[in-house]
Design a protein around this nucleic acid. Sequence first.
DNA 1: TGATTGATGTTACCGAGTCACATCACACTA
DNA 2: TAGTGTGATGTGACTCGGTAACATCAATCA
Lengths: 191, 191
Amino acid sequence: MARWAPNARMRLVEAAVDLFTEQGYDATTVSQIAERAGGLTRTTFFRHFADKREVLFAGQDVHRQVLADAIAAAPDSATPLEMVASALDALTGWFGDDRREFSTRVRAIMDANSELRERAVFKRVALAQSVTDALHERGVPDPAAGLAADLCVRAFFEAYERWADPAGPASFTDTARQAFDELRTALATLS
Amino acid sequence: MARWAPNARMRLVEAAVDLFTEQGYDATTVSQIAERAGGLTRTTFFRHFADKREVLFAGQDVHRQVLADAIAAAPDSATPLEMVASALDALTGWFGDDRREFSTRVRAIMDANSELRERAVFKRVALAQSVTDALHERGVPDPAAGLAADLCVRAFFEAYERWADPAGPASFTDTARQAFDELRTALATLS
DNA sequence: TGATTGATGTTACCGAGTCACATCACACTA
DNA sequence: TAGTGTGATGTGACTCGGTAACATCAATCA
């Protein structure tokens, strides 16, 4: 028998989401999260997450990688918009239905707290920066790369808002494609 | 003779910028800032600013107002791009040369600290949201309003990066106009 | 003259985040 | 089989950000 139960990190995330849902983010201490995650301590929590907020963003690095890989894999003939469209497909495809309920709960927690929204915005910009960097690698210059990246991330989060809702649409990918098309159409109305 | 020296708020900002420059943001405590600002205390600092970071963003609400007012004042015949272009002119025009050295110092402080960059990103998004709201008021629908607002804010900060540099260009307004034009040109290269 | 106001100070508290050091099951090696 | 890491965890102590209740006192005004 192992000395410690495995998956401490995942247990911390689940404990945190549960407690934040029950009591709110501010009213929950890191000690409470660690205790609920199988009798751990504060120190262990901070060994897994840089700060209290970060527990809600665990695993987002994967999203960056999915986007970057898709752009790297796009055909040479693709335009910047086609590159980010395929990246958008890759990322929304990565989200399964099993993640939907969790996403809904996390979204509700974040909506209720300004510190968390601040971190979420930061992560969103970091995601856009990853896309921008990947486009640079494919030869897309500034500032076009930044604009294309923004369209990609904007479509993603617009679709996420709709999908991470119990009454929302079933297909994340279709929702995102639709949001992306709406953005492309809107571009023509600006001038 | 008054009991307290006036302009405590401004003195706190100046003391903070001085100390952050000398010692770095992390190594400076709120007590040190308050003490340097004429023998004040921690409590007084937190009566003027919601948290330690906020002292570096004091007065940014004015920027939101300047942008919103300019969009509200644009002629009815203006396209969304023309509206945000005039807002961009208004905001860059608001910055005088007297603010340039201060901006340079603040920029250096923020570049060195990730907490501060996070707050800066949040403020930037809040600024874009203000522009979006102002465009809604003028009848620009979603998602076009968000896109136009992004172009505006993107041009502003691109120009700010160049201007808030001792070796940068002299005219903030001209720099921003140029950045905005570059963005418009890049839009045509996306698809 | 006396009450009110408003910016400030005092004190005490909580919790986030850090650090040095201790613990101990497990794995590996001689 | 005994000994020796190793790595995830715990312990205790500390600093500092942030909050709240209460006190102070010059200026102002009734």
